[in-house]
Write a protein that binds this DNA or RNA. Structure first.
Lengths: 235, 235
DNA sequence: ACCTGAACACCGTTCAAGT
DNA sequence: ACCTGAACACCGTTCAAGT
């Protein structure tokens, strides 16, 4: 029951993915080399190429391993709450591992762990009443949103800064930068400098998520409904 | 009027960014090295470090240069149509340059060209009636969506394949892969295999965009409105 | 079947030195 | 002020050869 009947040679793809995960945690994505992963698992870099076509494939495995211990939210309550919990969990898992979003960026990588989560999420969408086509599109959409969001969240603000300053400090610096723009040419950037730079990442994530959920809800109910007390991240 | 009064030394950041853009187009992101950019501009790689802190900063400049000749959609019609056109244009510009999404991935990079587009977009959002806070959050949200989407769109399907097969062929291969899963454990993945793999990227992009726009519309109108004939990507 | 040694063709970055 | 030469410490990948 170990993939395909062969005796495990002490060095499986699974083992390699776990080793890569440890190297990532320790050294970040820039320190994640074939040589270091090899060393982590007690082998030369060249040996890895027996188990894996190239580094890209190793990163695919690593991406799946990132979700290895993700546990879906409880299957109770409104579909909207379940979906929200799903996205928040996904975000938290990515944020929890160093540079995870950069590793996963633009990777479909349907490994066993990700398939398990997809299956579970599709089931909830179907139960909520989404058509097969809409459930599939929605699953993809939510994945794109969370991955795209966290990618920006984990990246240093404007990449130039943030090699010195703190998190919030960089944001206010960008705000001042906006405010210092020529007002004739950039009236809105000047006026909205605070609105653009002050919201926390939590705020931003919630905002996008609620808009998305609103849009999905509209898909479900033919546009007539009196119960309209959805929570709105609005001031 | 050239940045800051100094005589241009024949080698400006602008020149470097343009050269980087040409190298990117020719060799892709994996071939985009400091040495090659230097060669493109007729100089040693080391010389670039006089104008640029490091490769990250060069990529920031390149990201802004990617949007250099983007022209905003006409400022007429419903805000919803304008915003949709904006996102579609953004996507097209990213798709138009080789590996553009990978370069821009997770980069805020508020250079002059991107600032110009932000300013324009914020103006439209304010005109549409969005609050300052909502306009700012919406601008960020749309950026995340488009960038996250195209990133996945430009990445090879599952990264392992797509080094040989064609676009649509890889998709159906993944579909068959889903269908071959143990049905007891993955009933929905098996059942929705077609729905998950058949939609084109255009379909997927439109689906997410319309959901987003629906959610944003709900923000604008206090939930009572009879005119409800929005276009829906639904079958 | 699996791993090593050694090599190939590169990298980003630094830094003295030139002009 | 701007650029070069040369070096440092690495890379991913291949491939004969070992066991």
């Amino acid at each position: 029951m170990t993939e395909d009947g062969a005796a495990q040679p002490g060095l499986s793809r699974e083992t390699i993915a776990q080793a890569a995960l440890r190297v990532l945690e320790r050294e970040g994505i820039d320190g994640l080399s074939m040589r270091k992963v090899g060393a982590e698992v007690g082998v030369q870099a060249a040996s890895l190429y027996w188990h894996v076509r190239n580094k890209e494939q190793l990163l695919d495995l690593l991406t799946d391993a990132l979700m290895a211990d993700a546990v879906p939210p409880p299957r109770t309550g409104h579909w909207r709450d379940q979906l929200r919990a799903y996205c928040e969990l996904h975000r938290q898992y990515l944020l929890g591992k160093r540079d995870a979003a950069k590793v996963a960026a633009g990777r479909l990588a349907p490994g066993p762990h990700i398939l398990r989560l997809m299956e579970d999420q599709l089931g909830r969408l179907r139960e909520a009443g989404f058509s097969a086509a809409d459930a599939a599109l929605t699953s993809h959409l939510l994945g794109v949103y969370v991955q795209g969001f966290v990618l920006q969240e984990q990246a240093p603000l404007s990449a130039t800064e943030a090699m010195g300053a703190g998190r919030r400090a960089a944001a206010t610096a960008v705000g001042d930068q906006f405010r210092a723009l020529p007002e004739a040419e950039f009236p809105h950037l000047v006026a909205l400098a605070g609105d653009l730079t002050e919201p926390t990442m939590d705020d931003r994530f919630a905002f996008g998520l609620e808009r998305l959920l609103d849009g999905l809800a509209a898909l479900l109910e033919p546009p007539t409904d009196p119960t309209e007390d959805r929570n709105s991240t609005h001031e």
